[in-house]
Design a protein around this nucleic acid. Structure first.
Length: 183
DNA sequence: TGCACGATGAAC
DNA sequence: TTCATCGTGCAC
């Protein structure tokens, strides 16, 4: 596999989101390598996107989203679950891609369909917030044998408060993949 | 300093 | 459909 370069993330967020499908999320921890194949994502386009955390402006919580691309934005939701995002586009843009589900490839125990479950299975928590995905212990890679996939586009989950942005089809997943959280 | 509210998941 | 559970952001 080949680790994705910074330039991969420094592009239009809807393009990055769809290109992330089929890629491998790799986590090295305590001598164990865990790998999940990304099968479902959501794009959060920036300050103007009412569903994005960055629409609240630059705050202590969102500063990672406004930082340089290729970094992990990890936050606690509902006081219970962790959500893993990848920062995209240029510094200051406030865009990111939420990873919603992965398909187990290596050393993954339990379910991985849903942002919270994915994070739990991969051992991701707030300590990884701001982590540079070009490091060797936590990154995203292109598999050695890339296959062709069909992409389905749907509205994002849990963002009904975001007015017309709630209707935008910014959730992408691999067609017919059994590990998608909400087909 | 207090308080309302989630980019969810699991139980009922 | 309801609830657990807590950090963040903003009102006071």
């Amino acid at each position: 596999m080949t680790k994705l370069p910074r330039t991969f993330y420094d592009r239009d967020t809807t393009v990055v989101a769809q290109d992330l499908l089929g890629k491998w999320l790799v986590r090295q921890s305590a001598g164990v390598e865990r790998i999940g194949r990304i099968v479902e994502v959501e794009a959060y386009l920036g300050e103007h996107d009412l569903a994005a955390h960055s629409s609240k402006g630059l705050t202590e919580r969102t500063k990672i989203m406004f930082g340089p691309p290729g970094h992990a934005y990890v936050y606690l939701i509902y006081g219970v679950h962790h959500c893993m995002n990848v920062v995209t586009e240029c510094e200051g843009h406030g865009a990111a891609v939420l990873l919603r589900a992965v398909e187990p490839v290596k050393n993954l125990a339990g379910r991985t369909q849903g942002p919270g479950l994915l994070s739990r299975a991969m051992g991701i928590d707030r300590r990884l917030n701001g982590h540079d995905l070009l490091n060797d212990d936590f990154f995203i890679a292109e598999p050695a044998a890339a296959e062709k996939i069909a992409i389905v586009k749907r509205p994002r989950i849990g963002v009904d408060y975001a007015k017309h942005w709630a209707k935008r089809r910014l959730r992408f997943y691999i067609k017919n993949n059994p590990f998608v959280s909400r087909p």
